[in-house]
């Protein structure tokens, strides 16, 4: 068994996110550009979002620590850039992300909750005020598609700018299962709970719209498993995952199927950390 360190875990996490960014550039850049729906420089919008995240990380680190640190904050910021809706305005994104990032740095000293979900939810709220709540890219907004199951697996469904590829998510998950540090029970039980509930719902209502949800798969693999905000003990991880799966299913009827996993993860992470803090006052 090989020992790793925090830096290597962060690097691995980032490396495994790169294919998602490339897929995002293809789906939300190249394909739309080929249809003539966006200008040349907007082809790289997913990349711009990630670059803005990186710049914010570098600037804040230089300002606070006088050096750039490779820590989990880097992963958080990159993850946020991958799950953003296509219609987010780059300036709104930059300013809001900077403010929310600084806020999470301050708040994390006092409370513990899933930072990625927190930043994401604030950004979605601000974007809603400026552009409305839509995850459609210009092509999806203009045409009506009938996706086959393979299309959805490949990532052609509506969702975050670079997070829709289910195939990539499953590949990364299968790689991660061999990593000792990865909490593999969490995505397993989130998806299991979610699938069982949506299948029961399908049996009752014949509505299969929610069963395959790329955001639930991506969110459960990358965001719900972030070590800092999830429990350390296996039995608690399973309970945490079942709770997220359950809440995600409930929330799809309130917030829609894309945001539900992030809201559920945020709520449950907040709940368990408050619980743990109450139990063990220092």
């Amino acid at each position: 068994m090989k020992k790793s360190n925090v830096k290597n875990l962060v690097k691995l996490n980032i490396i495994l996110l790169i294919p998602f960014l490339i897929y995002g550039l293809y789906k939300n850049g190249y394909l739309i550009y080929m249809k003539g729906l966006i200008s040349g420089y907007m082809v790289f919008k997913p990349l711009y979002l990630t670059l803005i995240s990186l710049i914010i990380k570098v600037v804040v680190d230089l300002f606070i620590y006088k050096k750039v640190k490779i820590d989990y904050n880097l992963v958080y910021l990159i993850l946020v850039s991958l799950i953003m809706p296509y219609n987010i305005n780059l300036i709104v994104y930059s300013i809001t992300l900077l403010i929310t990032y600084l806020l999470t740095l301050f708040l994390s000293k006092h409370f513990k909750f899933n930072n990625v979900c927190f930043m994401y939810l604030i950004l979605i709220l601000v974007n809603y005020l400026f552009n409305g709540l839509s995850f459609l890219n210009p092509m999806e907004a203009k045409y009506t598609f009938s996706f086959s199951s393979l299309d959805i697996l490949m990532g052609r469904s509506v969702g975050g700018i670079s997070s829709t590829s289910i195939i990539l998510s499953l590949l990364v998950f299968s790689y991660y299962t061999f990593n000792f540090y990865y909490k593999k029970d969490i995505p397993l039980f989130i998806n299991l709970t979610y699938l069982i509930l949506t299948f029961i719902y399908f049996l009752i209502t014949k509505d299969n719209n929610f069963i395959i949800n790329s955001e639930v798969i991506f969110g459960s693999i990358f965001i719900s498993t972030l070590p800092m905000f999830s429990p350390g003990k296996r039995i608690l991880q399973i309970l945490y995952a079942i709770l997220i799966g359950l809440l995600t299913f409930i929330l799809i009827f309130i917030t829609g199927k894309i945001i539900s996993i992030y809201l559920a993860t945020f709520a449950v992470s907040l709940l368990i950390n408050v619980k743990i803090r109450q139990k063990s006052p220092k």
Binding site: V6, F180, K183, P227, G232, K233
Partner: peptide
């Protein structure tokens, strides 16, 4: 470094 709560020690 600061504990990242990965739970590897428990495992």
């Amino acid at each position: 470094e600061e504990c990242i709560n990965c739970g590897a020690c428990n495992k």
